[in-house]
């Protein structure tokens, strides 16, 4: 419950304060957000499976974000930034879908 409150607070803070991101970080933010979403869906599924571990969640969240940003950074340096970030988004999207399917099975038993 407190996690949901944290999410809502974050969105509100972003909308109200309107922080300006340093332009150096700008290209990594969308990928990092998608990676974090993947971690969150994974955590949700684990919670429903009853195997949720806060340590695993924290590590997977952070590593997802860092790896995603790293891949985009590397892609930019290699000149294939747009293709690589597309690839990352596709992979993370597939994972989010499969996690969402598992969550659905738990919630609706179908």
């Amino acid at each position: 419950m407190i996690a949901v409150i944290g999410l809502v607070l974050g969105v509100l803070a972003g909308l109200v304060v309107q922080p300006v991101l340093p332009s150096l970080m700008e290209p990594y933010l969308p990928i990092a957000v998608v990676a974090a979403l993947d971690a969150v869906f994974g955590g949700l599924r684990a919670m429903l499976d009853g195997i949720f571990n806060d340590k695993v969640f924290v590590v997977s969240f952070l590593s997802n974000v860092v790896v995603a940003a790293l891949i985009v950074f590397l892609g930019d340096k290699l000149g294939v930034g747009s293709q690589l970030s597309t690839g990352v988004v596709v992979v993370l999207g597939i994972r989010i879908f499969s996690n969402a399917a598992a969550i659905r099975r738990h919630v609706f038993r179908a």
């Binding site: 996690a3 944290g6 969105v11 803070a13 972003g14």
Partner: peptide, 18 residues
């Protein structure tokens, strides 16, 4: 719970900014 909430706060912030 608090750590998860903090991470989700960061996620929400990033979402909103993006």
């Amino acid at each position: 719970q608090v750590i998860v909430a903090v991470l989700l706060f960061v996620l929400g912030l990033g979402l909103a900014i993006q």
